[in-house]
Amino acid sequence: MRVLAQGKIEQLFDILNRSTELIQKAKDQSYLDSFIETLGFIQSDDEEDDELTEADTKKLTNIYADFNPDDFTAETFRKAIQMAVLKAIRVDTIQANYQLTPDTIANVIGYIIAGIFHDRKELSILDPAMGTANLLTAIYHQLQTSIGVTPTISGIENDDAMFELAADSVELQKIHAELFHEDTIQNVLAPVVDVVVSDLPIGYYPIDANAKGFATHSDTGHSYVHHLLIEFGMKHVLPGGFGFFLVPSQLFQTSEAKQLLKWMQGKVYLQGLLNLPKELFANAAAQKAILILQNAGDGAKQVDPVMLGEFPSFKDQQAFTKFLTEIDDWEQTDLL
């Protein structure tokens, strides 16, 4: 079955890629912009494009001659779109914040969420920096499969291109989602949810005036955007709810960390910090970790012990499975 599924992913990617390359060449524009046009094209009944020649329009029509979106599952669409975005990053030499969260990491976060909320019939999730929504939708599908819950999902994204990709991806996967095309730090009126999850952009937020309303803002100069987004995220989590953030492994070892720690006191509990395998990152400074926070209230308490550790290599299946078992035991014995 896996071979067949992989074949369908490659089949769909081939259609999307050929269409994108045709538009890219015809309009002399980036692969990413051409791919966004492709996603718009396959959702529209209108096969006309005034900017394409008659010959190119005919070629495009031929590419889609046997295309039927109903032949492909939602996960197939997600993964084919993921492949196309990865190609866009390579071809267009796109900035680091466009990088997708690998499925291996999304699966780990989804696994931890499933363990905590295994007995829930309903679940709401928000990503305050959703990018192309790959992490959000990967977890959505995983929770459907693993614990039989169809989450209510919401996401916020400021970048025009990433928001378009997210909106198209969600539409093609036939997922009902509430998406906000806004700057999260301007305090979007987003829903309050059970879980916030995000692969946070790392660096400085440029508009100091917007950051002033956050307890985690820097006293001098620009503030860390990942600190601001953690605070925003946890303010949009219900009492006792959780936040799962991909953060720098050295999050609490910078001089700016004192503001973050000060804000956390009495508001959120640090329940876990799990370093991802070093092999996933170009150097030690780029290593990331899964930060697990829980809002105070609704019976939540500081767990003892805090779940600290480093995932073994994802290639070492035996050690990886053993580590997941340790997380299971920690969730059931200490956290819940």
Rank of each mutant, 00 (worst) to 15 (best):
V3T: 13
V3D: 14
A5F: 15
E10S: 14
F13V: 09
N17D: 15
R18S: 13
Q24D: 07
A26G: 03
A26Q: 14
K27S: 07
S30G: 05
Y31T: 06
L32F: 13
F41S: 00
Q43Y: 03
N62A: 14
D66T: 11
D71F: 13
T76N: 12
F77G: 02
R78C: 00
A80D: 09
A80S: 15
Q82K: 11
D92H: 01
T93C: 08
A96L: 08
N97Y: 14
Y98S: 04
Q99T: 11
D103A: 13
D103T: 14
N107G: 03
K121T: 12
E122T: 15
L123R: 10
S124Q: 06
I125P: 01
I125H: 00
D127T: 03
P128W: 04
N134L: 05
L135T: 09
L135R: 04
Y140A: 00
Q142C: 03
S146E: 13
S146F: 05
I147H: 08
G148K: 07
G148A: 07
T152A: 07
G155M: 06
D160Y: 10
A161D: 14
L165N: 00
S169C: 13
E171F: 12
H176T: 11
A177D: 06
A177K: 02
E178P: 02
Q186K: 13
D194Q: 00
V196P: 02
I202M: 11
Y204Q: 08
A211N: 02
F214A: 00
S218P: 08
G221L: 06
L229W: 02
G233M: 05
M234L: 13
G240I: 03
L246W: 05
S255V: 11
A257H: 06
K258G: 06
L260V: 03
Q265F: 08
Q271L: 02
Q271M: 10
L273G: 04
L273R: 09
L274G: 06
L274I: 15
L274P: 05
L274W: 10
L274M: 06
L280G: 01
A285Y: 05
A286N: 12
K288G: 07
A289T: 12
G297F: 10
A300Y: 02
M307V: 02
E310M: 13
F314T: 08
K315S: 15
Q317F: 10
A319E: 11
L324C: 14
D329V: 12
D329I: 08
W330K: 01
T333Y: 04
L335Q: 02
L335E: 01
